[in-house]
Design a protein around this nucleic acid. Structure first.
Length: 939
DNA sequence: GTAATCACG
DNA sequence: GACGTACGTGATTACG
């Protein structure tokens, strides 16, 4: 080893700085065989190779190292906790590349230097200072202004992207002072990106002028009182301490204790085999060829499946036709691994980091995702490379015994946890919210994540479902093992824990492999469909938010529901006997068929209409009509039905939904359920809890907070009409919203020329029906039905409305035409809702065009509340508040009573600005808030 | 499994 | 001119 001395030349490459520059400078390249993002890796490798070639000869470096940031936690955070606090997470497609770039560095046979607690800049400063002191030369390969303070005799910088050296002159150009005073200028000017406070109101120009005048920072602060400009003087005096802290933050440490002395950084020639192996794995064909020719070895053959384990049997190859991707290795369930001991698990997990992406499929022991345990975890990193890790399987034989050949749960989870939480390993799932919840229960925060279900949803909402089986068929031409035979049905149904491991393993491992393949098939499509932003900002970030809400659950007062059930039962029994008396004979009131026969045959009432199945219609509208004619029986049936509905759907069923462990009800939200972007709530549905009748509201009174808390409800006022006013650009509507007018009264006034003051309620009601009708894609038939008026009258209303607001008709025509041309419509935020039926003939066409008119309006409203929900957790992090439920235009929170008002204001601010910055609405978004001792009282 | 009904926005 | 419709959901019940 040659000592570093006079004549030596050290190149220090700012690896972390370069990663971000390469990432943003290059298009999002992916590895061809599997879609792994590798743009930054490619940029890095090309840069290193170019540098190695160009620096040969007299000026060749004798020593070289690549330096990286290691952790977020540096000594600067101890000095100033807000330092770099608001820095966003790196993009998810960059995260897996961090590790690959370190691998690349080693493949080039270069030292890869990093140290906990320090930034790359501190390590560079330490080496550069030591090298200069030893009499050698230093070139810092970076354009980062934070490194410019190091420029000195013997130390210069080099910007590879601009291909120019940075010396004292260039530093002066940037900071207006010599390199040795750069720290002073940075301390004064601060840095908004890194959250270095500096002196408020002073930028680089002023700072340089002040330092130029007073010589250095301490002198300036000591003599601040002499400054003529009063504002500047006050700023410096008031913020002296903050400026000194800023100086400590920007000053690079030159005394980091480093394990490797400079002499160990001596340049070594790349080893051909090692380097080419890496380049082949990354599938960098051009660079591999170039490197091979330079190193005078044979270039590796890089096929499209390079990096994959060769298929066990490669005969059954699916041919996709000319111009299609290369032949695909078929799924082979016989090659999967079952991880039964810790050594096997460790070996498998060790393969994941280099990939940067792993498909994860987790099975709970049963259907409970909140308090249920894990039965097993399947992982996949490539075709045929999948494994199943059984954890909670049991053998049933009267009692349940833990099945043999399973690693103890705690030990396995301890090994999984670092990978599942590793920021540089992307975890992909299908409906990954399930996995997030199951792992959260085990203290594991699954992140970062991707979701093939949501990829499909962002790409193809309205075209087809997004279940795993549908997608496997559609995109892989593969039919997976069915879940049903494993779990049985009816009486013989069993939880996944009871499925024998040898049956569970191929099913689960195949699931993981399918997810991995689907991700590779779907993720690259996002930019082509222009839905990357939709997916990245409105689908994926919602997953952890919903997982937390679902885990929170809401407290429900069982005793109260039970009392209501009893009350309803009594009243139903009374009604039942009354109805039977009126009918003259007993029958099943709950049977529409029997009821129809009683009404229209036995009692011979008029107006009986048979539907397409031959049964009489007995819907509420029919019964109401009969009741209005003075018939008692249908009126009693309506009362009975209302109670029956409340009892069976709510007061009885909701009690069963209370979780034994938490005492709360945990709904599950379907993110990809509704084509428009709305959520759907299931098991139980908490988005249709009654509110419109007094009896219904009694059920809401059973939704209660914990002691000392209140339920806080915030809802958007008229959000869909506001969106319509914006999208269709209706000046009168927009103005009415700006002026805070009663929008339905205003509509009525415009249409019928009636003054808003003292407007008769039936006129307003008609206008309200029209406003809603417009959102739904109005038709005379629908409006007539709703208002119980003749169709001709309804048509006249609509004509008048369109005359008064011609922009609405234009919007409707424009939207339908767009759908016909493109096959989809879009929300304000770019969400696509496909309309495959839009060009159909016959009655389908009407449905499709109304749906197309409604979708951008309903969907934009859905987007807005999604955006709000994603921002809420950070906004309320400092408050004793939890977000519990979403009901399309309402968010419900549980909050300490003392913090209700503050929480309301914080959330109101988030909700009313949720469209920004993507869309600036021409109408205000008004949010109403209320809180109380129950969900009913919160309204 | 499907249709009818009705709860919500 | 007839068709036959308000938009988006989920749960329960009856019934074949």
């Amino acid at each position: 080893m040659t000592p570093f001395a006079k004549g030596s030349h050290l190149h220090l490459i700012d690896g972390s700085g370069f990663i971000f520059r390469a990432y943003h400078a290059l298009p999002p390249l992916t590895r061809k065989s599997d879609g792994l993002p590798i743009g930054a890796v490619a940029g890095f490798c090309n840069m290193i190779w170019k540098m190695l070639q160009e620096t040969k000869g007299d000026d060749a470096p004798t020593h070289m190292a690549v330096v990286f940031d290691k952790s977020e936690q540096t000594f600067r955070k101890d000095i100033y906790p807000a330092y770099k606090a608001q820095r966003p997470d790196p993009p998810d497609d960059l995260k897996p590349q961090f590790r690959l770039i370190r691998d690349a560095t080693r493949a080039f046979n270069l030292p890869c230097i990093e140290k906990d607690g320090f930034e790359a800049d501190d390590i560079i400063a330490t080496y550069a200072t030591a090298a200069a002191a030893a009499g050698g030369r230093v070139t810092i390969v970076s354009a980062d202004k934070d490194l410019m303070q190091l420029v000195a005799p013997g130390i210069e910088m080099f910007d590879t992207l601009k291909n120019r050296a940075i010396g004292p002159d260039e530093v002066f150009e940037k900071f207006g002072v010599a390199p040795d005073r750069v720290i002073d200028v940075q301390a004064l000017a601060g840095d908004s990106v890194d959250n270095v406070p500096g002196a408020p109101g002073i930028g680089i120009k002023t700072a340089a002028q002040l330092i130029g005048e007073y010589g250095d920072l301490e002198t300036l602060l000591a003599r601040a009182a002499e400054i003529k400009q009063p504002k500047r003087r006050a700023t410096l005096i008031d913020n002296a301490e903050q400026i000194r802290v800023s100086r400590d933050l920007v000053t690079l440490r030159r005394d980091v204790e480093l394990a490797d002395g400079i002499e160990t950084l001596e340049v070594r020639e790349p080893e051909a085999e090692q380097l080419l192996e890496f380049l082949a794995l990354m599938e960098f064909r051009t660079l591999a060829t170039r490197v091979a020719s330079k190193l005078k070895v044979e270039a590796p053959v890089i096929g499209d499946t390079a990096g994959f384990a060769p298929p066990a049997s490669g005969t059954d190859v699916r041919v996709l036709g000319a111009g299609e991707p290369p032949p695909v290795v078929p799924i082979d369930r016989s090659v999967y691994t079952v991880l039964r001991d810790e050594a096997a698990l460790d070996a498998w997990l060790a393969r994941i980091p280099a990939r940067g992406v792993v498909a994860v499929s987790v099975e709970g022991i049963g259907s409970d995702e909140v308090t249920g345990e894990i039965a097993g975890v399947a992982l996949a990193i490539g075709p045929g490379a999948a494994a199943y890790l059984p954890l909670g399987h049991v053998t049933a034989g009267g009692d349940l015994f833990s099945a043999e050949g399973q690693i103890p749960l705690a030990a396995a989870l301890a090994r999984l946890k670092p990978v599942l939480q590793d920021a540089s390993v992307l975890k992909i799932g299908h409906d990954v919210k399930r996995a997030v919840k199951l792992f959260a229960r085990q203290g594991i925060a699954l992140a970062p994540i991707d979701d093939t279900m949501l990829l499909s949803y962002a790409l193809h909402a309205g075209l087809h479902g997004h279940g795993r089986d549908v997608l496997a068929e559609e995109f892989l031409g593969h039919q997976p093992l069915a879940r049903r035979p494993l779990l049985g049905g009816g009486k013989s149904a069993r939880g996944f824990r009871e499925v024998p491991i040898e049956e569970a393993a191929p099913y689960a491992a195949e699931d993981a492999e399918i997810i991995w393949r689907l991700w590779n098939a779907l993720k690259p499509k996002l930019p082509f469909a222009r839905v990357t932003r939709v997916y990245e900002t409105m689908e994926r970030p919602l997953v952890p938010v919903l997982a937390e809400m679902e885990r929170n659950g809401i407290r429900v007062d069982r005793a109260r529901l039970s009392r209501l059930s009893g009350d309803f039962a009594q009243r139903m029994a009374a009604l039942e006997s009354e109805i039977h008396t009126l009918a003259g004979s007993p029958f099943n009131i709950g049977s529409p068929k029997q009821l129809g026969e009683v009404l229209f045959e036995q009692m011979s009432l008029q107006g009986g209409k048979r539907g397409k199945t031959g049964a009489y219609g007995t819907g509420a509208d029919v019964l109401e009509e009969l009741a209005a004619q003075g018939h008692d029986l249908p009126a009693r049936v309506l009362d009975w039905r209302a109670l029956s509905k409340l009892k069976s759907t709510y007061t009885d069923t909701l009690q069963d939904a209370i979780n034994r462990e938490t005492g709360r009800v945990h709904t599950s939200y379907q993110i990809a359920g509704a084509a428009t972007g709305r959520l759907a709530s299931t098991d139980p549905n908490l988005q249709n809890i009654p509110v419109r009748t007094d009896e219904g509201r009694q059920i809401r009174e059973a939704f209660v907070p914990e002691a000392g808390n209140v339920l806080l409800s915030l809802d958007y006022s008229q959000i869909e009409l506001r969106i319509l006013a914006h999208m269709a650009d209706i000046g009168a509507l927009r103005q009415a919203f700006h002026d805070g007018l009663d929008i339905h009264a205003m509509t009525a006034s415009e249409m019928f020329g009636v003054p808003i003051e003292g407007m008769p309620s039936h006129i307003r009601r008609q206008a309200k029906a029209i406003n809603f009708g417009v959102i739904y894609g109005i038709s005379a038939f629908g409006l007539a039905n709703n208002l119980r008026i003749p169709r001709a009258d309804a048509q006249r209303f609509i004509d008048t409305y369109f005359e008064r607001f011609p922009g609405i008709r234009e919007y409707m025509n424009r939207t339908v035409a767009f759908a016909k041309e493109h096959g989809h419509v879009e929300t304000l935020f770019g969400r696509r809702i496909h309309t495959p039926e839009i060009n159909a003939k016959g009655p389908h066409a009407g449905f499709a065009s109304r749906a197309a008119i409604n979708a951008p309006i309903q969907g934009s409203a859905a987007d807005i509340i999604r955006r709000a929900m994603i921002r809420v957790p950070a906004a309320i992090a400092h408050l004793p508040a939890k977000m519990l439920l979403q009901v399309h235009d309402e968010l419900l929170f549980e909050v300490a009573e003392s913090a209700a008002e503050e929480t309301a204001e914080v959330v109101r601010a988030v909700m009313s600005t949720a469209a920004l910055p993507a869309v600036a609405l021409d109408v205000p978004l008004v949010v109403d808030a209320g809180w109380g001792e129950s969900w009913s009282a919160a309204h």
